[in-house]
């Protein structure tokens, strides 16, 4: 599903002569198979979020390549990657990243609108997805009117609505209390089992890390170890 091959990445800070290059990822390689739930763990500043951003296409690696579904995504242009994301990747963010001026329904509907789906089909699909995450009755609520857990479910619904084979989650439970965290993880498990969706989860929470099929630990920009179950 995902092939990460020899990824190097460094940031440049400072201006001109005083420019300093800080390496973040060094020779990172791993594979994630279809239907797996893989957690990437690491301390703060280990480079795990940078890795996720490279896989997501939000930043280009200094070197190396990433393949998703046999497509070398690191070679895609910004526009091509956007289209690719729309078809193949769903996102769950720590801060939910819902558009505050849109209702839950409109937020979930948005990716389908970008796809150019007709209105009737789009509305039906959006409602079905909101029902799946148990938020159909809150569809007309704005994000500010929903709890953290509910907002994260809306975020999951938005990721699910385009039927992606892969969902990338960046600290999905970071803003949730422990009860909500448990129910969210159970829901991710359910989606994985029922729909065969591959999950790549970035976390520093041990409980979340252990919940997946496999854990990849990043230390100082290297893959330290892969722990399977």
């Amino acid at each position: 599903m995902i092939e990460v091959n020899k990824i190097y990445h460094s940031f440049e800070i400072g201006k001109k002569e005083k420019k300093t290059v800080i390496p973040v990822l060094k020779d990172v390689s791993f594979q994630i198979n279809k239907g797996e739930i893989v957690s990437i763990v690491g301390k703060s500043g280990s480079g795990k979020s940078t890795l996720l951003n490279i896989i997501s296409g939000f930043i280009k690696p200094t070197d190396g390549e990433v393949k998703i579904n046999n497509q070398t995504v690191t070679e895609l242009s910004e526009g091509e990657f956007a289209s690719f994301r729309l078809q193949h990747i769903g996102f769950i963010f720590q801060n939910f990243q819902l558009i505050p001026s849109m209702t839950a329904f409109q937020n979930v509907e948005l990716p389908l609108t970008f796809k150019g789906m007709n209105e009737k089909e789009r509305k039906q699909k959006t409602l079905e997805t909101l029902e799946r995450v148990g938020l159909a009755e809150f569809k007309d609520h704005y994000p500010s009117e929903l709890s953290g857990g509910q907002q994260q479910r809306v975020s999951i619904a938005r990721a699910l609505v385009v039927n992606p084979p892969l969902i990338l989650a960046d600290e999905p439970t970071g803003s949730l209390d422990s009860d909500t965290e448990k129910s969210l993880l159970a829901f991710i498990k359910q989606l994985n089992e029922e729909l065969g969706i591959t999950f790549l989860i970035i976390t520093h929470d041990e409980e979340v890390a252990e919940f997946g099929h496999r854990t990849i630990e990043i230390v100082d920009g290297h893959v330290l170890e892969e722990v399977g179950k």
């Binding site: 526009g79 956007a82 289209s83 994301r85 990747i89 996102f91 819902l98 990716p111 970008f114 938005r158």
Partner: peptide, 11 residues
């Protein structure tokens, strides 16, 4: 957010 979830820059 729109770009992250797949909006094309052209859109």
């Amino acid at each position: 957010i729109m770009k992250a979830i797949g909006a094309h820059p052209r859109t």
